[in-house]
C-alpha cells in the first residue's frame, strides 16, 4: 500500500463522517438535521460535532428556525464546501489512477 502524503489532503475531510455529510448535501443543496442523521445513521451528538467542525471550516451553513413552534436545524453546503469536496474527490481519483 502506498502512502500519498504529497497529495496534501484536506484534514477536515479526512473524517468519513464529515465526508459523508458534505456528500449528502452536495446534490440536494440543503437538508434537515434529522434527515442527515437518519440517512447516514449517525448519532445526534456525533452529527452535531462534525457539523460544527464543517461550519468552522466554512464548508457548511447551519440555519436554525421554528416550524409550527418546533425548532428545526437545516444544513446547507457552501460554495467553499462544494469546492473542497470536488478537490478531495479529484485527489482520491488521482491516487487510484482514475481520470476525472
Amino acid at each position: 500500500m502506498n502512502d500519498h502524503a504529497h497529495y496534501d489532503f484536506d484534514e477536515v475531510l479526512m473524517s468519513r463522517a464529515r465526508l459523508a455529510i458534505l456528500s449528502a448535501l452536495v446534490s440536494s443543496g440543503e437538508m434537515e438535521f434529522t434527515a442527515v442523521r437518519d440517512l447516514l445513521g449517525l448519532t445526534q451528538g456525533n452529527l452535531s460535532v462534525h457539523a460544527s467542525k464543517l461550519q468552522q471550516s466554512g464548508y457548511l451553513f447551519i440555519r436554525k428556525d421554528f416550524v409550527a413552534n418546533k425548532p428545526r436545524t437545516t444544513f446547507e453546503i457552501t460554495s467553499q464546501g462544494r469546492s473542497a469536496l470536488v478537490a478531495h474527490l479529484q485527489k482520491l481519483k488521482a491516487i487510484l489512477g482514475e481520470h476525472p
Binding site: 502512502d3 479526512m14 456528500s23 449528502a24 446534490s27 447516514l40 482520491l92 491516487i95 487510484l96
Partner: peptide
Amino acid sequence: MNNQQAAEDLALIRSILQATHRRV
C-alpha cells in the same frame, strides 16, 4: 492516505451521491 482508504472514501462518496440522487 493509502490506496485502500482512498478507494473506501471514493466508494462512500459515490454511494451517498447515488442514494441522495434517488431519494426524490
